[in-house]
Amino acid sequence: MAHRFFEGTAHAAVYAKFRPQTPATLTDRVISFLTEKYKESLAAAADVGCGSGQSTQVLGPHFASVTGLDISEAQISEATKQNTRTNISFKVSGAEKLPFPNSSLQLVTAGQACHWFDLPKFYQEVDRVLVPGGVLALYGYLFPQPIHGDLTEKLGDIIEDMYKKELNGYIHQGSREVYLENYGAEKYQLIYDEFQEDRDDTHFVDKIASVSDLTGYITSWSGFQNFLAKNGDTAAKKILDNFQNRFMSTLNVTTAPEDTQICLRFKYFLLMGRKPFD
């Protein structure tokens, strides 16, 4: 059974606001890998575990039809609200039973999501819906790395401490597979060796954000949402305030958190496999 940690309406809105946009270079690499051997027109793709739709939108220019799927009605509502392309649609669906006919898709993607799936069932469904020569692309991103001169490492440690220490005991195994096992890439390697044909760790996206935005991003973590649900607003606000105060103190600036701009670098890892041709 798939895990369901991102279903609240407020959480979906936070997810949409603070999660990074999939880098165009990563999408281009996926399309390049697909078309290296698949020479027909690109008719249809699905983005599974799409959340609020950031990972779905980037597929729009490449396919006649793209469908974003998520188990959360709130996430699909948010994705639909944000959607500006007529060839993209969103549906509520789990990853273990995909709403497509056999051999109907050229591409299935899952961005920062497949660690929540029942993977054997997901793989079976992907094999069913992909055309021969179609591609499954799975990717994720690591903790945002503040790029700030000689403070880069110290600021990064503050984010990691929030995840590992303040939220210790509230992080589910799916998140640990991405973030806590050598920052996830090696763990993904172990999970997906059974189908992997291509691996690419070169992609990243830089996002200019305020310290307040970074704090908002932390509220989108499932671990924080679990902490909030179990401990209440006051305790949740306290750990956020402590994080933000520590971050600002390390920066040693006099501006307010909402007026203090930093560069956050999200590094991605990508694994792809192709369904054999008949």
Results as ranks from 00 to 15, higher is better:
S249T: 10
A235G: 00
I239A: 09
D233H: 15
L251N: 13
K230I: 01
F247T: 08
F227W: 06
A235I: 04
N231E: 07
L251Q: 12
W221T: 01
S249F: 14
D241V: 10
S222W: 03
R246P: 04
L228A: 00
L251V: 12
Q225V: 00
T219K: 02
L240S: 06
K238M: 08
N242W: 02
W221M: 01
N245I: 10
K237M: 14
R246D: 11
G232R: 03
S222Y: 00
K237C: 13
A235E: 04
F227D: 04
S220M: 08
D241M: 11
F227E: 02
G223T: 07
T250H: 09
R246I: 05
A236T: 06
A235D: 02
M248L: 12
S249V: 10
Q225R: 00
T234Q: 10
N245T: 11
N252V: 13
F224N: 02
R246H: 10
G232D: 07
F243H: 06
N242R: 04
L251Y: 14
D241A: 14
Q244W: 13
F227N: 08
N252K: 15
K230Y: 04
T219Y: 08
L251A: 12
T234F: 14
N252Y: 15
D241W: 12
T234I: 10
G232S: 02
F243A: 09
L228M: 06
D233E: 15
D233S: 15
T250D: 11
N245M: 09
A236W: 05
F224V: 07
L228E: 04
F247Y: 14
K237V: 13
L240W: 01
K230A: 04
G232Y: 03
N242Q: 06
L251P: 15
L251E: 12
N231S: 05
S249H: 12
S220P: 02
S222C: 00
W221F: 01
L240D: 02
N242G: 05
G223S: 08
A235N: 00
K237F: 13
L228K: 05
Q244A: 15
M248G: 09
N231H: 01
S222K: 05
G223E: 03
N252D: 15
Q244E: 15
